[in-house]
Design a protein around this nucleic acid. Sequence first.
DNA 1: ATGGTGGGCCACCCA
Length: 271
Amino acid sequence: MRLTLATWNINSVRLRIGLVARFLKNEAPDVLCLQETKCRDNEFPLSVFHKLGYGYVALNGQKGYHGVAVASKIPLEAISRRSFCGNGDARHICVTLAPASDAGRGIALHNFYVPAGGDEPDPASNPKFAHKLAFLDEMAAWMASDGLAAFPAILTGDLNIAPFETDVWNHKALLTVVSHTPVEVEKLGGVRAAGPWVDALRHFVPIEERLYTWWSYRAQDWRRSDRGRRLDHIWVSECLKPHLRAARVLRESRGWNQPSDHVPVIAELEV
DNA sequence: ATGGTGGGCCACCCA
């Protein structure tokens, strides 16, 4: 079967539930991973997802900040949530996808919202940046010890890092800007190597081609200035690499009414 | 070089 998976930092799922519905009607992914839902689990607009055919929803929310969710047309099993850096932030949820045609163990799906890291790229003076680096270290160590990617697995979400030169509008200018500094790019590389994971978007889009998933709200005209960054990712385990069929960015949604500053990333696999 | 715009929520924190 064809499995379509999307990830989207929605920046308040309650405010933008209309955009989510539009996206689900238009693109109809089998699975949608959300970040920055910004609500408690009992405030999540479940009924909208149910009405649109997403009968399986797994939540890890909290009041006002962060929060991740997975909505799916296919059954979700073995739902778990991990707290990173021991501070109780809702930044991770793991589910197992059980596609009908998959006779095996299913696909483990990790949905992450990595800390943004604040403004100053110095862990000594900026605790938010220190938190981001510690979070990435913990991700890599966890992956290495648990062999998460040794079986069919997907790691997705807002990783808040644009790793390659063509993942930002100006590589040189952004070397000192949190999201593209060498130290965090290297740590993200460590997480990827710990799988090892395959970057689904870059599997299909040549590295020479600029590719963004986020444009700041602060630009006067995001489309004209096009000062974007590729912060949102879908990674698959090596054994799923031969099953990748397509991956793309839904750039147009940045121009919708009252948009999120992030747009969806979509990957298709034959499983 | 600076400040620009959004969200949650009720004083600011966060992106």
